[in-house]
Amino acid sequence: MKVVALIVQTVRELVAKATLFVLAGISTLIILVVLLSIGSTETPEGVVLTMFSLPVSPPSPADKLAEVVSIMQAGFAGGLFVGVVIFGVFATAGIVPDTLEKGTIDLYLSKPVARWELLLGRYLGAVVVMLINILYFLGAIWVIIGFKVGVWNVHFLFAALSLTFVFACLFSLTLALGVLFRNTAIPIIGSFLHLFVIGGILEHRDQSLFLISENAVYRRIIDGFYYLLPQISAMQENVANLIMQQTITWEPFVQSFLVAALYFGAAVVLFMKMDF
């Protein structure tokens, strides 16, 4: 009950922020563009996907159309994820540091609510808001493509859950940094650094960091860093594979879940030891 109250409160707080309105606005704009532009035309060579009446795919036989559509959907999901991460991290990075501010934390902790419940409620609230955003965008695109092209790819809907999971893993890092530094800037910088720089370098460490040295200890350390961070790009790749109904590797999801649990646990331990 208390955690539910905190989730609802966090949703309310995030809805009140302009950042998420921008994300929802951009999503709505893209949905409208897709609604007004996407279609398909039958040619003697096969079905062609069109946008604004211009062909955007080679002619495909009717049974191959679903495959072409799924590639397009994977592109939508990938684009959405970048948007969700950028706006989502900006919007949510402050919710924990704001809670820890003098005069605010006193109000929360004077109530019979455990510190872990407070963090969990705030964390889940942020994840729920992102789920709603992702479902809104992907759901609308799914319905539009379904009606206008006639392809109902259920895997595209599953991608909403997967992308939310990816965000949740990243947000555990944001949350831990928020508790540790009690400000908003460092969690944002840390999350973006991981997402756009460190994560990519570590993911492709055999083509970058491993070239520096062949020393086994050095490589183990680099591997250690890799496994201590959520594997965002590997998961993203798998989400695309899920939409395109290709083989999925579960290992990055499992590993990222464990790492997220570790970060959340560390944040709770740190929070429990704090004096206000």
């Binding site: 309310r12 707080e13 009140a16 003098k102 005069g103 605010t104 006193d106 109000l107 004077s110």
Partner: peptide, 15 residues
């Protein structure tokens, strides 16, 4: 069983 009003409290303003 207790109530507390902190000094310079900052309740969530969006409520």
């Amino acid at each position: 069983r207790i109530g507390y009003l902190p000094e310079n409290h900052r309740p969530p303003g969006y409520f």
